[in-house]
Simulated scan of single mutants.
Amino acid sequence: MTHEVRAVVARQKGAPVSVETVLVPDPGPGEALVRVQACGVCPTDLHYREGGITGEFPFLLGHEAAGVVESVGEGVTEVAPGDFVVLNWRALCGGRCRACRNGKPWYCFDTRNAGRPMTLADGTPLSPALGIGAFAEKTLVAAGQCTMVNPTASPAAAALLGCGVTAGFGAAVNTGGVGRGDSIAVIGCGGVGMAAIAGAKVAGAARIIAVDVDERKLRWAETFGATDTVDSSRTDAVEAIRRLTGGFGADVVVDAVGRPETYKQAFYARDLAGTAVLVGAPTRELTVELPLLEVFGRGGALKSSWYGDCLPSRDFPALIDLYLQGRFDLAGFVSEKIALDEVESAFAKIHRGEVLRSVVVL
């Protein structure tokens, strides 16, 4: 059986997206059909539309999603129809690759997505964003991309765990290892950076420094737990971070922007033997140059955080529990709720820095 659904499609580079009829097949072996309830509008979807990820147009956009499993294919045991799930980028191999065998499944080298294509009405195959494609009434994923969470959670809030919130929270907590009494600086206070700030607060950091060029975002950062703010359009961010940490630099500095200049700020703003974490996604042409003697002499660690070193089966339910306990303001990331045909206008709001997340609610 094929399901006709409304979905947001990017047909060509830089062109406005459109809401079109998309054909979604029933799940095959190891797959699940999910009725999407909510999906966040992430800057990565805009990068897909702009050709910044791949050139495999047309794209079925949307990847920060929560919904209900409608049906499953042969051999699926992870989830069942009726389960409330948050979707993640990739199903883990389950122990076949060396990362999983070595006890680091968040680095799984043999991940998978659904094998059966979703198509336009004329049969043209679509490339689903991050293997999900959830700006749609229904989507087809590998069953391992579905993580069950507490069904009492708001779908609009839960959906955001699928990408930006988990990436930021995990960059601070999983990758950076920030803990009780530590200092952390977060450069870039969009959705990912704000989640790093919120994660540091949950972890018990004593000083949480938010850095941005937008005064509005710095005010938002205070609501998520920032103890100090730095407007880097007016003052040197590295000097300000050092001044706020007794002249030493922060224990952890998170670059949630992903540009050479912000990465250098993160490198120099950390304490000796401190940790710099890159979680902001750079574009392909960007490079960074650092004095090798400084890299050697300062010690510490320079880390990349891919998906916040997240393990969905571990982290999604835990973060939902923190949210339901009132300890993590997941709903605070939802700036507005919109319809499918408002995604293009939501992209414009991302450009203008007006939202943390617009969330499509179906």
Results as ranks from 00 to 15, higher is better:
3 H>N: 14
15 A>L: 12
17 V>K: 11
26 D>P: 04
30 G>W: 09
37 Q>N: 01
45 D>V: 04
48 Y>H: 13
52 G>N: 11
53 I>W: 10
60 L>Y: 03
62 G>Y: 05
77 T>V: 13
80 A>K: 12
80 A>Y: 00
81 P>I: 13
81 P>L: 12
81 P>F: 13
81 P>Q: 10
84 F>D: 03
84 F>A: 04
91 A>K: 02
92 L>G: 00
93 C>V: 11
99 A>G: 02
101 R>Q: 15
105 P>W: 08
105 P>A: 06
106 W>A: 11
108 C>P: 01
109 F>G: 04
112 R>Q: 14
113 N>E: 13
127 S>A: 08
130 L>K: 08
132 I>E: 00
141 V>R: 04
143 A>F: 05
143 A>D: 00
151 P>H: 11
153 A>F: 00
156 A>L: 11
161 L>F: 12
163 C>D: 11
165 V>T: 07
169 F>N: 01
171 A>I: 05
172 A>C: 07
173 V>A: 03
173 V>S: 05
187 I>P: 11
187 I>W: 10
190 G>S: 03
191 G>I: 06
198 A>H: 09
198 A>G: 03
199 G>S: 12
201 K>N: 07
203 A>F: 05
207 R>G: 03
209 I>D: 02
210 A>Q: 04
216 R>K: 13
216 R>Y: 03
218 L>I: 13
218 L>V: 07
219 R>P: 03
219 R>N: 07
220 W>M: 01
226 A>F: 07
231 D>E: 07
233 S>C: 07
237 A>D: 02
237 A>F: 01
246 G>Y: 10
248 F>K: 15
248 F>Y: 15
253 V>G: 14
257 V>C: 08
257 V>F: 09
260 P>W: 08
264 K>N: 14
264 K>T: 14
266 A>I: 01
268 Y>F: 15
270 R>L: 09
271 D>A: 15
273 A>H: 05
274 G>E: 05
275 T>E: 00
276 A>N: 03
281 A>F: 11
281 A>P: 00
281 A>K: 06
288 V>S: 12
296 F>C: 14
302 L>D: 10
303 K>F: 09
303 K>Y: 07
304 S>R: 15
306 W>R: 14
306 W>F: 14
314 R>P: 07
317 P>G: 01
318 A>W: 09
319 L>G: 03
321 D>T: 15
323 Y>H: 13
327 R>C: 02
329 D>M: 01
331 A>L: 14
340 L>D: 06
340 L>K: 04
344 E>D: 15
345 S>E: 15
346 A>I: 06
351 H>P: 00
355 V>M: 09
356 L>N: 11
